[in-house]
Simulated assay, not measured.
Amino acid sequence: MLLQNWVRNVGLSLGFANSSERAKLYCESGIEHYEQKQYQEAINDFTQAIACQIKFGEAYGNRARAYFKLKRHGQAWQDCDRAIELNPKDAMAYTTRAGVKFQLRNYRQAIEDCDRAIELNPRLTKAYYYRGLALCQLKQYPAAVPNFSKVIQANPYLSQAYYNRGVAKFYSGDIQGAIEDYNNNLALDSSYANAYYNRGLAHAKLGNKRQAFFDWRHAADLFLRKGEMPLYNKAVKLMASSPLAKQEFHEEMGHMIQRGRENLDNSPMLSKVVR
């Protein structure tokens, strides 16, 4: 890799390559920077590649991905449009644009781009993921479930996919299926407070009051450690609504409620608002 970098850099600096070759060298450099999460450096390289070859669709698509990582959504969208104009079969450009549209809350348009990306490349996992997220935002939960299943089939270790499918199953009425997905999510990431919180809701829905209570308590502990006090207080409120709060944990509940008040009163966010 070091020798390859040296050869490429010498070629660029001394002008050994023609414009087409220089564009490819800059694009390769941009991809390496992108993979190292050096997104601005990647953008600079892709811009150089485009300067060398104005109709270099791959460079536009790659630069769009780097812009997206930096949340520069307008520029990412423009580059996706240009990449698709130059290569209408660029499935990744459609997927990146779907991600941009999702972030901008254009959910129906995001789904349309995902549909096109999947039509071009049925193995493009990220397109299924964005489509599932967009369908959830439109409350089309049953339709979202198989999209997350596709993601899990391709990558069974992606904890967030289990969580999102759990949400979709819960609102589709498959409560036990939601619990199983939250279980898988927590097996992969035991610090994910939202999964405990939502699993508690699912257990409560099935009448499993004890399991629900302990899930909310675990969620509250994690929210407190992260300083997420509004979510902490929501979890404590759910605990307080449980019969177990009075029967077995009355004293503990009093301490938890007081702790929430103290931390909320002392939070920087609240102090900033008061000023």
Rank of each mutant, 00 (worst) to 15 (best):
L2C: 10
N18T: 02
Y26N: 00
C27H: 06
E28H: 01
G30A: 03
G30Q: 07
I31V: 13
Y34F: 14
Q38I: 02
I43P: 09
N44K: 12
D45I: 07
Q48D: 04
A51Q: 15
F56H: 03
G57W: 07
N62W: 09
R63V: 10
A66Y: 08
A66C: 08
K69Y: 13
R72A: 02
H73L: 15
H73P: 10
Q75M: 14
Q78W: 06
Q78F: 10
D79M: 00
R82E: 11
A83F: 02
K89G: 08
A93K: 09
Y94F: 15
T95C: 14
T95S: 15
T95K: 09
T96Y: 14
T96M: 11
R97A: 05
G99L: 11
L104N: 12
R105S: 12
Y107E: 07
A110I: 08
I111E: 01
E112V: 06
D113Q: 04
C114Q: 09
C114F: 12
E119W: 11
N121V: 06
P122D: 04
R123A: 11
T125K: 12
A127N: 09
R131V: 04
A134G: 08
C136T: 07
K139A: 03
K139G: 00
Y141I: 03
K150Q: 15
P156W: 10
A161Q: 05
Y162T: 00
R165S: 01
V167R: 12
A168R: 03
K169W: 01
F170H: 12
D181E: 05
L188K: 06
A193K: 08
A195D: 09
A204R: 15
L206C: 04
L206E: 07
R210N: 10
A212N: 09
F214E: 00
D215A: 03
R217N: 13
H218R: 15
A220P: 01
G227K: 08
L238C: 06
S241G: 03
L244P: 05
E252S: 12
M253N: 11
M253A: 06
Q258K: 14
G260L: 07
L264D: 12
